[in-house]
Amino acid sequence: MARPALPDPRTDAAWRYALVAGLVSGATVLLAGWRATELDARLGPVALAAVFGGVLFANTTIAGKTVGLRTGAVAAVPLLLPVGAVARSIPTFAQPAWFGVVQTLLLVGVAAVVIAFTALAGAVGGALGEWLAGKLGRERRSSPPAGG
């Protein structure tokens, strides 16, 4: 049984948008978090990038929620940098080995939650963008455009 091929970001416009918008919005959230005095994650830039994606891809066969989900998943990559820093520091603690394993497992759980919330923010933003595009008169196509 053959597996479906992964989309190529060089030819798939939705993935190209998600890669650029996701990395920029994720880096924006990361930099804003480093400047903040308290631990606070604001996913507004991710949702805003996903809204733009939903509007931009409204007249294609790709759902705005899909573009938003991709944008959110890519935006999670820069947000995982601090998780990597914590993971590298766990072996340096003076503690029993089993406690290091527990900390690592908890850190994997935290990373999964970060990815899930960022992807969810993107999906909601993309759906909102698609809805907004519908209100502005840009309906989604049900089939690929002719000649393309």
Rank of each mutant, 00 (worst) to 15 (best):
11 T>D: 13
115 I>R: 08
78 P>N: 09
38 E>P: 00
97 A>N: 06
131 W>I: 01
32 A>N: 12
109 G>D: 13
19 L>Q: 06
64 G>D: 05
117 F>T: 13
65 K>Q: 12
84 G>K: 00
47 A>H: 11
111 A>C: 13
77 V>W: 03
127 A>N: 11
15 W>H: 10
1 M>N: 05
125 G>S: 11
103 Q>S: 11
142 S>Y: 04
54 G>D: 14
93 F>I: 12
89 S>M: 12
111 A>Q: 14
108 V>T: 12
135 K>Y: 04
81 L>V: 15
67 V>P: 06
26 G>T: 03
73 A>K: 03
35 R>V: 03
34 W>N: 09
31 L>H: 05
5 A>Y: 00
86 V>H: 12
71 T>G: 07
32 A>P: 00
144 P>K: 10
56 L>I: 04
102 V>C: 01
82 P>W: 04
121 A>F: 00
24 V>R: 05
81 L>Y: 14
146 A>P: 03
53 G>R: 04
43 L>R: 01
69 L>V: 06
35 R>F: 08
94 A>E: 10
1 M>I: 09
94 A>M: 04
84 G>D: 03
84 G>H: 01
57 F>T: 08
27 A>N: 02
53 G>D: 12
63 A>R: 14
10 R>Y: 07
91 P>W: 04
82 P>Y: 07
108 V>L: 14
12 D>M: 10
3 R>E: 13
28 T>D: 02
77 V>H: 00
44 G>V: 15
13 A>M: 04
13 A>W: 02
137 G>W: 13
96 P>F: 06
103 Q>V: 07
26 G>E: 04
130 E>R: 07
107 L>R: 09
66 T>A: 15
38 E>D: 15
138 R>E: 08
123 A>L: 10
100 G>M: 09
49 A>M: 10
47 A>Y: 08
126 G>K: 02
7 P>E: 09
28 T>C: 12
91 P>S: 05
104 T>G: 11
71 T>K: 06
7 P>I: 11
131 W>D: 10
72 G>Q: 14
137 G>C: 10
35 R>M: 11
80 L>V: 05
124 V>D: 00
57 F>V: 05
85 A>V: 15
83 V>H: 13
119 A>P: 02
132 L>H: 02
105 L>C: 06
68 G>K: 11
147 G>S: 06
28 T>E: 06
56 L>W: 07
128 L>S: 07
42 R>C: 04
39 L>R: 11
2 A>G: 06
88 R>H: 04
74 V>E: 08
78 P>H: 04
35 R>G: 13
144 P>M: 12
18 A>P: 02
69 L>H: 04
85 A>C: 03
53 G>Q: 07
24 V>C: 09
113 V>I: 15
52 F>Q: 00
95 Q>P: 00
113 V>R: 15
132 L>S: 12
59 N>W: 02
15 W>K: 05
117 F>N: 05
97 A>G: 07
83 V>R: 06
67 V>M: 08
88 R>Q: 11
26 G>V: 03
96 P>W: 02
96 P>T: 07
26 G>I: 03
85 A>R: 14
31 L>C: 06
65 K>R: 14
99 F>N: 05
